[in-house]
Amino acid sequence: MKVEATATGKNVHPLLKVENLVKRYTKRSLAGTPEELLALDSVSFTISPGTTLAVVGESGSGKSTLANCLACLESPTSGNIWFEGKDIVKLEERACRQVRRQIQLIFQDPASSLNPRWSAFEVLVEPLILQRKFNREEIKKRVNYWLGRVGLSQDIVGRSPMELSGGQRQRLAIARALTLEPKLLILDEALSALDCSVQAQIANLLMELQGSLGMTYLFITHDLAMAAHFADEIAVMDRGRIVEQGPPNKIFIQPEQETTRRLLAAVPRIGRGDQSALER
C-alpha cells in the first residue's frame, strides 16, 4: 500500500482510505422518469490511525450517507473504501460482519439507538454476546470496565434506557460501541442532541479515550466550532462533495469556499460586538 503524507505530518499507513465514493439513490414513481439523487459525489479522503477527521456540512450534504457507507450499513454505488488495506466495499455478508465490528457508528439520537424494551445491561452486553467469545464472568468484567471508563455508575444497569438522561444514554451508546474495541469510531452528529455542558463532557471523554487507547475518530457534525475543538483535520461537504479540506487553522483563517464561509458565519460568538466576522 502507498504511504501517504497526512495533515498531521506523520508518514503512516492510513487506517481508512476512501476513493471516489459515489452513492446514488433512485426514486421510482408510477409515472415519468425515475428521479436520481446523488448523495455522495466522488468523495475521497484518508484518515491516519489515532487522529480525528471532522466532516462538516449543512444538513442534506451527504454526511450521514457517508457514515452509513463507511460502517458497512449501506453499499455505495461505486468507489472504494480501504480499511487497513482491505477493500470493504465488495465483501460478502459474512466477511462484512467481521469488518462492521471494527468500525462502530454512534448515532445522533441515543434514545433511538438503544432498544427501549431492554435494560441498560442488556443493551450493553449485546455486542459481547454477539461475539460469542466470552463467558458470563468476562462479560460482567468488561461491562463494568467500560461503564467506569465512560463515567457511568454501575447501578444504572438495571434501568431502561428511557429512564436515563440524554448524556447518560449517549455515554451508554459509546460504552456499548467501545466494548468491541473498534479501530474506528464514527460519530454521526453524536453530540448535537445534547446540551452544551454534556457536549463538552462527552467531547472531553472522547479526547481522553483517544489519548489512552489511540482511537481514530470520524467526527460528523454541522458545528464547526466543535469540529475545530476536536479534529486534526476538517473536510467540508456540500451537496455530496468534499469542497475543502485542511487543518482547522487553515479552514478557520483562510476559508476558500463559500460553503465554508457560510458555516463559519453560523458559529455563535459570545462577547464580541463586531459583526465583521460574519460579513467576511
Binding site: 460502517a71 462492521r100 462502530q104 448515532f107 439507538s113 432498544n115 449485546e126 454477539l130 456499548r176 460501541a177
Partner: peptide, 25 residues
Amino acid sequence: ERDFVRAARGFGATHGYLFRRHILP
C-alpha cells in the same frame, strides 16, 4: 430502519438474530 437495529447490525448481528431479538418484539 430503526437505529438500534442498525447498531446491532454494526455489532455483526445476523439477519436471524435481528429478526428474533429486535424486530419480532
